[in-house]
């Protein structure tokens, strides 16, 4: 069996790849947001309260993409 046949034998829904992609971006984004917050709090612990709020807003926007991306499972057949 040559390689082309093996590749052609793969089956499933290509949209599944999209759900995976929808999770990668926000995961990286949340990682950056949280990492930078740790840096900020380490530099200025007295700003922890403000930085937490900014971190929360950042996480909310980043994860919104993931939610909508994964929820497309409902409309993409």
């Amino acid at each position: 069996m040559d390689a082309t046949t093996v590749l052609a034998a793969l089956d499933g829904n290509i949209a599944t790849v999209g759900y995976g992609l929808a999770a990668i971006g926000p995961a990286i984004g949340v990682g950056i947001v949280v990492g930078k917050t740790i840096e900020g709090v380490a530099r200025q612990p007295e700003l922890a309260g403000r930085l937490q709020v900014l971190m929360w807003i950042g996480i909310a926007f980043t994860e919104a993409l993931a939610f909508i991306g994964i929820a497309t499972y409902f409309i993409f057949v």
Binding site: P45, E46, L47, R50, V53, A60
Partner: peptide
């Protein structure tokens, strides 16, 4: 729901008054 939640979050944060150096 997601978009409304984001709008609410931004409005609440924009209207909040947090002092700098509040946890000192």
């Amino acid at each position: 729901g997601v978009i409304a939640s984001l709008v609410v979050d931004v409005l609440v944060v924009a209207r909040s008054r947090m002092p700098y150096a509040s946890d000192v």
